[in-house]
């Protein structure tokens, strides 16, 4: 199988290791991948802030860049839902609409791609330690991806999986919400961090780098010993 990588801007700029890890896992599974070097941002920040004109321009651009792709995989539930769920709400050009209609169903979030498309739940990863999982809101409620990441985590060799309290409660990131309402956002993140720490886990896994940016920021401020990790990074352990 051959896919195109969609590496969201946040991952590209802040967490390239996540995309590298994803490549490693894909390679191990025999998936060929290509990277369209002109890609930037899907337009979500503009869309979520109410700027549909700017969001539409970036959406058109995204669809044009990904025109050549047949199947696309991204390590982010948030950016995937932007394309799949929210692009259709924008007033796109006929060409953009056509690409979206074709590409939308073939755009996968990473864990979903592994479990439902490749039908793999054990990638052969190894990790010694206790791991808990945070449900990212977009992944859970827009894309309804709940079980796939858990199946993948549970099948990592040597790993002990533990659920945290309120695992489906938002971490408080919320895009521009995090900077528009920093106090509320931080209060939410602090409760999330406390729930993570209560599990006694060594690592907390999430599927969205944006949530991880929030969770990591708070854990680090609390000088916590829990390591934040993207699912791709966990699955690349030991392979």
């Amino acid at each position: 199988m051959r896919i195109h990588l969609f590496v969201p801007c946040l991952v590209d700029q802040f967490y390239p290791g996540v995309a590298v890890a994803m490549c490693r896992v894909l390679k191990k599974l025999g998936v060929e991948y290509a990277y369209l070097t002109d890609q930037t941002c899907c337009g979500q920040p503009a869309f979520n802030s109410g700027y549909h004109r700017e969001a539409t321009e970036l959406a058109e651009r995204f669809l044009k860049v990904f025109e050549p792709a047949e199947t696309v995989v991204a390590p982010s539930g948030s950016c995937v839902s932007m394309v799949k769920i929210f692009y259709p709400q924008l007033e796109l050009s006929p060409a953009g609409k056509r690409t979206l209609e074709r590409l939308g169903p073939r755009l996968f979030e990473f864990s979903d791609f592994l479990v439902r498309e490749l039908r793999v739940v054990d990638v052969g990863a190894q990790f010694r330690g206790k791991v808990t999982y945070h449900d990212s809101c977009h992944l859970l409620r827009e894309l309804k991806i709940e079980e796939q990441p858990r199946q993948l985590i549970r099948n990592v060799h040597g790993l002990e999986f533990v659920e945290m309290d309120d695992m489906q409660t938002c971490c408080g990131f919320g895009g521009t919400f995090a900077v528009k309402f920093p106090e509320i956002s931080t209060a939410m993140g602090t409760d999330k961090a406390a729930a993570i720490e209560r599990t006694g886990a060594d690592a907390v896994v999430a599927n969205d780098s944006s949530c991880l940016m929030q969770i990591a920021g708070i854990l680090s401020r609390r000088k916590s010993r829990v390591v934040p990790m993207h699912l791709a990074e966990l699955l690349a352990q030991g392979i």
Binding site: V7, V11, D12, Q13, F14, Y15, P16, G17, A19, V20, Y35, T37, A178, V179, K180, P182, E183, T186, G189, T190, M213, Q214, A216, G217, I218, S220, R221
Partner: peptide, 22 residues
């Protein structure tokens, strides 16, 4: 600003994914 009062901001890596790929 608007971030760091209660949280640490992630350090930018030296190279982006794009650079690594190139």
């Amino acid at each position: 600003p608007c971030w760091s009062a209660g949280r640490d901001f992630p350090p930018l890596p030296k190279k982006s994914f794009h650079q690594l790929w190139e």
